[in-house]
């Protein structure tokens, strides 16, 4: 928590939608969000569908350019803002980051090693290590299209690990997984936090967020409506669990909007 790792300054993303009556309407999917996350911290993003979670995470991982605002990463004394350089230090995972089905996991990881500018020896060593951690030994040489859902998810995580990034950005990593697989992912995140890694992730599972996160951001209509440790949020609203906190905040926002 002492040192800032990744920082976002007043991010705005505007999409232009064609609406009826010959009008083009600008929608701010993300509307001026600033945040900074320290080393060894897990931050969870909660919010209803369409709140702007995915857009925010895509901008944080430099997949999408913000309409305004800036994302930077602190490595040592250096503050990095260049898109390509920032990507080197981020491991991004979402439901849309599918793997090349016709390659094997090992081939994929080797290719990534070259693309991240790692030496051959380092890559091979890392692959062995990852294979061990995620117990991929039995299927690492099979074509990815032939793997089961859980194996595919493990291969996806392996993809984020190869370059040993300082920051993980996960967009709903446990969505649609069984208890065992999602427990493995939660376990993995906890371990990585222990190694001083920074994790920013979005989820719909409140219990999971409550259990895992050091800090929670509630997002609604592109804005942070509440922020704090799970305990603090509960105390603030006087509710017993995060689910009720969430429901209450959204309701309040809705009423505030109508006025």
């Amino acid at each position: 928590m002492e040192k800032n790792r990744i920082k976002a300054d007043c991010l705005v993303k505007t999409f232009t939608r064609n609406e009826k009556k010959n009008k083009k309407i600008d929608i701010n999917a993300v509307d001026g969000i600033s945040l900074s996350i320290g080393e060894g911290e897990i931050v969870g993003i909660l919010g209803p569908n369409g709140a702007g979670k995915t857009t925010l995470l895509r901008m944080m991982s430099k997949l999408m350019r913000p309409t305004s605002g800036m994302v930077s990463i602190q490595i040592g004394e250096k503050e990095i803002t260049d898109d390509i350089e920032v990507k080197r230090h981020i491991g991004y995972l979402s439901n849309n980051t599918k793997l090349y089905g016709r390659l094997s996991s090992r081939e994929l990881l080797r290719m990534l090693g070259v693309l991240y500018g790692m030496s051959k020896e380092d890559t091979e060593k890392k692959i062995e290590e990852i294979s061990e951690i995620l117990s991929m030994g039995s299927f690492i040489d099979n074509r990815i299209e032939k793997l089961s859902t859980g194996q595919t998810q493990r291969a996806s995580i392996a993809r984020c690990l190869v370059h040993d990034p300082q920051v993980y950005i996960f967009d709903e990593p446990t969505l649609g997984l069984d208890i065992l697989s999602s427990a493995a992912i939660i376990d993995f995140m906890k371990k990585e936090r222990g190694r001083g890694k920074t994790i920013l992730y979005s989820t719909h599972y409140m219990e999971e967020a409550e259990y895992l996160c050091d800090r929670i951001l509630m997002i609604h209509r592109g804005k942070i409506i509440s922020e704090g440790a799970p305990e603090g949020l509960k105390a603030q609203t006087g509710k017993g669990n995060l689910r009720d906190v969430f429901a209450e905040l959204i309701e309040k926002e809705g009423i505030a909007d109508e006025h």
Partner: peptide
């Protein structure tokens, strides 16, 4: 269609 485009965009590749 296979959804690998977003994956490759996470890489430090222009």
């Amino acid at each position: 269609e296979r959804g690998t485009l977003e994956t490759i965009l996470t890489l430090p590749v222009t």
